[in-house]
């Protein structure tokens, strides 16, 4: 019976396919490229060409206003390697990513788990935690500068109320970067939380019901059901946040200015200053390539780790 069906089915389908082929559908044709041409053009114009131009620029002596002064080979990269401000900027950026990405994953997951229910209170809190994400960097830094302001700031006032000594986060070389980490977490914790909430709602309820029937406790359920189900989302959040946080700039510029003593200057600020303040576009482009490489390595490393875990 099934054999007859198998024989009949291809025969039945063969006529329309043959008709379609005769009309040219399904045949490889260069004209088909027209469908993807707009996207390809956009990619070329907005990504490939600027990336290629940036790479070329990194080997040139290019003054923003004075124009091109010839090729300098690897000189921009050699100068970068010996530039202590750049070395500090790379260190600060890596440190910032190392502090913020796990925090975004951990805190985002914690908030999502805590607020993943149908209560009105949770809905309000979800809006509150997401609310800060819609603010611009200027507004966010304005708020936090008032918090951090020595003597009259909120932080100093609260510490003073408890009889604790004031901590000048922004002016302390050891704490300046941490002050920016706090601001950044407060500002955009909403996105990881929302991604985790969406992922949590995709986990079938039946699995939890089965676990409950097996008398699995909360910790056991979290460890054996929730976290494995969120593995891909955790990876997604980590990759997105790593890429975003490597580009840290606005908060730093407006809160610490990169100081004190270069303790909080990120690579993007270095690029901005080299290119737009000092007009050394070639040098700035070389620093951009280094940042691009760092981001690429971090993203690839996380993806590789994710695939390895999947296979495991």
């Amino acid at each position: 019976m099934s054999g007859a069906a198998d024989v009949l089915a291809p025969g039945a389908a063969a006529r329309p396919v043959a008709a379609a082929s005769a009309a040219g559908v399904g045949r490889p044709s260069l004209l088909n490229l027209l469908f993807v041409l707009p996207y390809v053009m956009l990619m070329l114009g907005l990504v490939a060409v600027p990336v290629g131009f940036g790479l070329w620029l990194s080997f040139q002596d290019y003054d923003m206003l004075g124009g091109w002064n010839g090729s300098v080979g690897l000189a921009n990269y050699v100068n970068l390697l010996s530039d202590r401000i750049f070395q500090g900027a790379v260190r600060n950026t890596l440190l910032f990513v190392a502090m913020t990405v796990p925090a975004f994953v951990g805190l985002g997951l914690f908030l999502a788990l805590a607020l993943n229910d149908g209560l009105r209170r949770s809905a309000v809190l979800r809006s509150v935690f997401f609310g800060s994400s819609v603010l611009s960097v200027t507004v966010v830094t304005l708020i936090w500068r008032l918090v951090y302001m020595p003597e009259r700031g909120l932080l100093g006032t609260v510490l003073g109320a408890f009889g604790l000594p004031e901590v000048n986060l922004v002016a302390d070389e050891r704490l300046a970067l941490l002050s920016v980490v706090i601001v950044t977490l407060w500002w955009i914790i909403g996105l990881p939380m929302t991604l985790f909430l969406a992922a949590l709602q995709q986990i079938p309820r039946e699995i939890y019901e089965a676990a409950a029937l097996d008398n699995a406790g909360r910790a056991r359920t979290l460890w054996s059901i929730t976290l494995p189900s969120l593995k891909r989302t955790i990876l997604l959040v980590a990759v997105i946040e790593a890429i975003l946080q490597f580009q840290i700039f606005g908060q730093v510029l407006l809160i610490t200015g990169g100081g004190p003593n270069n303790a909080s200057r990120p690579v993007v600020q270095f690029i901005y200053e080299a290119g737009f303040r000092d007009w050394q576009l070639g040098f700035a482009a070389a620093a951009s390539q280094v940042l691009f490489l760092l981001m690429l390595l971090a993203a690839l490393g996380q993806l590789w780790l994710g695939r390895r875990q999947d296979r495991g």
Binding site: N168, A171, E173, G257, G258, G259, P260, N261, N262
Partner: peptide, 9 residues
């Protein structure tokens, strides 16, 4: 910036 580092840091 260096003076800021002297004062603050």
């Amino acid at each position: 910036e260096e003076i800021v580092s002297v004062i603050n840091a």
